[in-house]
């Protein structure tokens, strides 16, 4: 039940401008066009009254209404994006570059469209105002994705023996093994941090949040957080060096095409590796 106002209808009538502002902000920041932003505002309003104001009845006044509405509408927006585009976890690079980059990555990496098809889909069908040069720049910055699949023994038998490229394969395997070792060391170092420290690092380096936004997310004072993040990087670097991995080697060694298990973990590690 609501602590301060027992009447969700009255609360909504009073806070309608706030609801609209939050909805518009969430949609705009998610890359929606102006028309789509207004649609999202309309759906946000309906969501508030659906099921006898269920959303507002759950508001217990433990946070500000702005924060609560932001979380609720952000979840609504993310859910709608999953329904429309399908479930897909963007790479850390795309997340840092913003919604357009995330969409480009989906079209190129998940849907397998050519660059021409992806650009036409974005600009003609979806109305993104994206110059071709900017599209090319973003596409070039996105990390490659390799899809691993299981094959049966029969299929394996049909694979030809190593030929002239065998040497290159050996080099690639060695590089993958080296990367796997580095990855294991970084996982081990991260496991030595607290959950809060890992979340801080992920928000800062995987999601690309500013230090101010990280502080806002975790309700931490902003100024000390700068120093704390620096110290965390130093600790992580020291832990890696103890295991024989130098921080400077990480970027060179950790390619996202290396065969790690779990894409999200790989991206986390890659993003953090770049930071160290």
């Amino acid at each position: 039940m609501m602590a301060s106002s027992p009447d969700p209808a009255a609360l909504l009538a009073q806070q309608l401008p706030l609801l609209d502002e939050v909805a518009r902000s969430v949609a705009r920041r998610g890359g929606s066009r102006p028309d789509d932003q207004e649609e999202f505002v309309a759906r946000a309003r309906l969501r508030m009254v659906e099921d006898d104001y269920a959303v507002l009845r759950k508001f217990e006044g433990r946070s500000s209404l702005r924060t609560y509405l932001t979380v609720v509408l952000q979840r609504l927006f993310l859910d709608e994006r999953v329904r429309r585009w399908g479930r897909w976890r963007s790479s850390a690079v795309a997340r840092r570059m913003g919604p357009a980059a995330q969409r480009i990555e989906i079209l190129l990496r998940r849907d397998g469209l050519s660059a021409d098809e992806a650009w036409q889909t974005l600009t003609w069908n979806e109305g993104w105002a994206l110059p071709r040069a900017e599209f090319e720049r973003v596409a070039a910055a996105l990390p490659p994705r390799v899809r691993h699949r299981q094959v049966d023994e029969g299929e394996l038998e049909s694979v030809s023996a190593p030929g002239p490229a065998a040497e290159a394969e050996v080099v690639a395997r060695e590089r993958a093994e080296q990367a796997e070792g580095t990855c294991r060391a970084l996982r081990c170092a991260l496991a030595g941090l607290t959950a809060e420290e890992r979340v801080i690092l992920k928000l800062r380096y995987q999601d690309g949040l500013t230090v101010g936004a990280v502080a806002r997310a975790l309700a931490l004072p902003e100024k000390p957080l700068f120093r704390r993040i620096e110290r965390l990087r130093e600790r992580l670097r020291a832990a890696l060096e103890q295991q024989g991995v130098r921080g400077g080697d990480l970027v060179a060694v950790l390619g996202e095409d290396a065969p790690y298990a779990g894409a999200t973990t790989t991206e986390d590690i890659h993003a953090l590796g770049q930071a160290i």
């Binding site: 702005r66 927006f77 806002r216």
Partner: peptide, 22 residues
Amino acid sequence: IDGCPDCHELLAESARSLDAQA
């Protein structure tokens, strides 16, 4: 949040939104 990609994403995106609103 540390172990749940969905909640982590929601936290990050909500923080960005609040930042933009501010």
